[in-house]
């Protein structure tokens, strides 16, 4: 059985705000029936203050889907809708003292229902761009679609590169066979063969052609771009050192010691690699100290 936290169990056995809200003026329906989860979120929003007066959920789904729905309604009740939109998947998971990696999509569903409901309230159309595939890396909750897209976008060729870009395969390594199969499939699209002996990092992309100073400034700019995302999760990032392809950063606030920190680093790495147009590796600042101690 799943390793559900006590909070998840408690919210599943005694869900808060179950059922549709009376006189709701915002409705959001999201989910995927084939994966067994669907959620309808109804809100009663005060038109003057835009405060969420009441929130209710109806969920077709598993224990954590019901618990995530319950948690979401508890978090957003009394919030202004603009503030409520700032609630992240991680906030929902944190509220429940964490979710198993296979179940993180349940919290994603909650956030999307909220976006859909707000769009409905504002008379806008909400379009979801989120496509979900089968979970490949269980250590870091990385799915097939995410890996495929990253492989295509960055012309990746090796398992090591996939790990560097997405973090998938960076834990127990049991999914390496699955990652090799994805690489074989995606490379075949362009008539190439997966070579298990290829060396990571040899990406056929033009080097950035920037001076060291320009390159550092560019790195700082790119970090600025993603800073709001981290701050939304009550965290932040600080650039510590740039040493060739190694970029050392320090995670601050909620990001420090967060169990998803490794995934966050992966995301920062991807953003920097794309922005610089070259292969780089983002490492935690502690790694710099460790390498210095080892004399290199």
């Amino acid at each position: 059985m799943w390793d559900y936290s006590e909070k998840v169990q408690e919210h599943f056995f005694n869900p808060r705000n179950a059922g549709a809200v009376d006189k709701a003026n915002a409705v959001g329906d999201v989910g995927s029936l084939s994966c067994g989860d669907a959620l309808r979120l109804t809100l009663k929003v005060d038109p003057d203050s835009e405060v969420i007066l009441d929130a209710g959920f109806q969920t077709f789904g598993c224990g954590s889907a019901i618990a995530s729905s319950s948690a979401l309604t508890e978090i957003i009740k009394g919030m202004k809708i603009d503030d409520a939109l700032g609630v992240s998947n991680q906030d929902i998971a944190d509220f429940l003292d964490g979710l198993p990696p296979e179940k993180m999509h349940c919290s994603v569903m909650g956030r999307e229902a909220l976006q859909a409901a707000v769009a409905n309230y504002r008379g806008e159309e909400w379009k979801d761009d989120h496509e979900e595939g089968a979970l490949v890396c269980k250590c870091f909750a990385i799915d097939e679609v995410m890996i495929e897209d990253t492989v295509r976008a960055n012309g990746l060729r090796t398992v090591e590169e996939v790990t560097n870009y997405t973090k998938a395969g960076g834990g127990c390594s049991a999914c390496h066979e699955g990652i090799e199969e994805i690489l074989t499939r995606v490379l075949a699209e362009s008539g190439e063969r997966f070579d298990p002996n290829a060396v990571a990092g040899e990406i056929k992309k033009p080097k950035s052609g920037l001076t060291n100073l320009q390159r550092m400034k560019r790195i700082e700019e790119l970090l600025e771009e993603i800073r709001p995302n981290l701050q939304r999760d009550h965290g932040d990032v600080e650039l510590v050192e740039v040493d060739g392809k190694y970029i050392y950063v320090k995670m601050i606030g909620a990001c420090a010691g967060c169990q998803m920190a490794a995934t966050t680093l992966g995301g920062i790495q991807q953003h920097l690699a794309e922005g610089l147009g070259e292969f780089i590796q983002v490492l935690p600042a502690e790694e710099l100290a460790r390498r210095a101690a080892m004399g290199g």
């Binding site: 995927s32 084939s34 994966c35 067994g36 989860d37 789904g61 598993c62 224990g63 954590s64 889907a65 198993p100 296979e102 179940k103 979900e132 595939g133 089968a134 979970l135």
Partner: peptide, 10 residues
């Protein structure tokens, strides 16, 4: 159900 196995399909 899909969720008992952690897969995406029933």
């Amino acid at each position: 159900s899909a969720c008992t196995s952690g897969s995406l399909e029933p």
